[in-house]
Amino acid sequence: MTTTPPTAPVTGRPAPDRIAAAGTALARAIQRVTASALGPYQSAVIRIGFAATYLFFLVRELPHRHELYGPDSPWHWDLARQLTAGNEAFSVLLWSDSVLWFEVVYALTILSAAGLLLGWRTRTMSVLFMVGVLSVQNRSVFMGDGGDNVIHLMAIYLVFTRCAQVWSLDARRAARDTERGALGLPPRRDVVGPVFWAVLGPVLLGATLMDGLGGTWWLPVLLWILWLSAAAWWAANRFAPGGQPRALLDVLANLAHNATLVVIMVEVCLIYASAGWYK
């Protein structure tokens, strides 16, 4: 009489169940990435930290601004023009060598850093902050060091993040609009946003026509996309606040935000790893 050896119990799920579970997990991950902007507090810390750092730097160097980046700089305006013509860098300070223009750009950079720090009109302030940082640093590029390069990059990254979800004046305004919606009242009419859009549009058009946006292709494309997207956001919020266009804009903004956070995390790890390697 032969006996059949006992079979080992089957562990794990059958292949179809594992595939279904993997598909469900992937769907949840995609839903999470597209439906929400992750790391609201972390992105707010980045916004506040870099805006405060550069604001402090600009205010501290107020007595020496002309020697560092202005008309009295050892790196003369003509030399800066020659350098940017070769490396295709962007700086609005090279649109004119007048002292008045320098003072206007320096003051606007300070104001944009303060606005970004407070989270007031953060989308617009982040773009103006990026323009200010690039303009000041590229005017006298040899005045900077590795830390300036980090601020240079972070100023660009902040444009793609939804970094005003918390700890900002924009978040307070959004909360008030939510309260008004719960009471059946319409949101407050936005006047400042369209004014910014109407003022900055002709400036961007003039800079594009006069070839004043540097020699790279990505910066003009980015600025025009941001300007047009601001109009799309305003139209969606005004005419279809709960419709599909508004939902699509949210998905695109969340994807850009989350992808940028990944880039920032990788860059921070690379910076600290490089510091450790060189030590």
Rank of each mutant, 00 (worst) to 15 (best):
P241G: 09
C163Q: 14
E67P: 04
A27H: 06
P40L: 10
R121D: 01
T260V: 02
L270D: 05
D148A: 13
A29L: 07
T178M: 05
L261D: 11
R173D: 15
A164P: 00
A235F: 09
M154E: 07
S96A: 05
S140L: 12
I19Y: 08
A247T: 09
G132Q: 11
T3H: 11
I156D: 02
G49W: 04
W167K: 02
L255E: 00
L204N: 03
K279P: 09
D78T: 14
L248A: 11
Y69M: 12
D170R: 00
G193Q: 10
L134D: 09
L58R: 10
L94T: 01
V45W: 13
F129D: 00
H257V: 02
E267V: 15
G132Y: 02
A171V: 07
G243V: 05
T161I: 11
V221R: 05
P202G: 12
A175E: 15
A8H: 07
Q137M: 09
M210A: 14
E179S: 07
R13T: 15
R176C: 02
A22L: 15
G181R: 15
T2S: 05
N149G: 10
L204T: 03
T24G: 04
H64L: 07
G23A: 12
D72S: 10
I271R: 15
R121W: 00
V127H: 00
L111C: 15
G132I: 08
V99M: 07
D145I: 10
D250I: 03
I225D: 09
T34W: 04
V150Y: 10
N149V: 14
L213S: 05
D250M: 05
R173N: 11
H257N: 03
R32M: 14
V59F: 02
K279L: 10
G193L: 08
L183F: 06
D170C: 00
T2K: 10
S73N: 14
M154A: 11
P5E: 12
A240Y: 04
I30S: 06
A247G: 08
T216G: 11
Q31S: 12
L111K: 03
W75T: 04
